[in-house]
Design a protein around this nucleic acid. Structure first.
Lengths: 142, 142
DNA sequence: GTGTTTGCAAATGCTTTGCATCCCT
DNA sequence: AGGGATGCAAAGCATTTGCAAACAC
């Protein structure tokens, strides 16, 4: 299976785009992140080592990463779009605590099977999904 | 079971807020809507009959409606927050076509049961959820 | 009467875009 | 060489906020 960099390079060349040093740095930094990251946060991390890269480039590159399936958008209701990388990663969903904002990840194969059935029933071909549970964690109930 | 207006009035008085004519109009217009509506769209509908109501009031009132559980936020990735009313309505989820933007609603009890199990396992009390499937509808695959 | 709400406009915050310059290929 | 990419600043949106006047209770 192709690794993330290869996936990106293939996508880039197929679209006659260019594999610039900025895109490489953004991809690398993004892949190091093991958690949902906002554009702003990613930009700050990148700035520490590469202060010349502009946030517009980060925005633009994240769009590309979504285009080739390496990144997925999430919105948890704080007004910022967050991204997580999806290639070769086990897909997971989220439980979000409305009390303290804690986010727990989970995965459930049965739900995914049911989703595919539903898609078939509605004559859709489904490529991605988003499942979020909102509530209160044990600590916040107390 | 209390109707929507009663739920809202109770919430309003419990918080020592006021049941103004604007809030009544916004609630009524919102409840008439049988589909996810954005603040902008709701504002436009309201403006037709009540041109003096400002969009800020619509924003503020929708926040209140969320607070008492009458409205639920959804984001389908078009940069606008959309709302649907939830009281006494059967909860449903969405399949979204990335081709034409079509949104189909569905409901599946088995998935909801699984969600509750997951919540319990993670020691969460879940009050709401959001499930969205993204893909292509039959027409767009062709 | 008094504290809340409203409409307006200005402000905010995230994201996108125009443009001259720069850099892959 | 040449078309895409970059950084910057400006522009664009959706949403929020400050404030004086208006209103509900």
């Amino acid at each position: 299976m192709k690794n993330e960099k290869e996936v990106f390079e293939e996508y880039i060349s197929k679209k006659n785009l260019k594999f610039t040093s900025q895109r490489k740095i953004i991809l690398d930094t993004f892949l190091k992140e093991e958690w949902h990251i906002s554009t702003e946060e990613l930009y700050k991390k990148i700035s520490q080592k590469n202060p010349t890269i502009g946030i517009a480039t980060v925005y633009r590159t994240l769009k590309l990463l979504m285009g080739c399936g390496l990144a997925q958008e999430r919105q948890f209701g704080d007004g910022q779009t967050r991204y997580e990388h999806s290639h070769e990663h086990i897909h997971h969903d989220h439980i979000i605590c409305r009390g303290c904002g804690k986010i727990v990840e989970f995965k459930n194969d049965d739900i995914e099977k049911l989703q595919n059935e539903i898609a078939k029933k509605n004559r859709f071909k489904v490529y991605a999904h988003k499942l979020e549970l909102y509530g209160l964690c044990y600590d916040c109930i107390k």
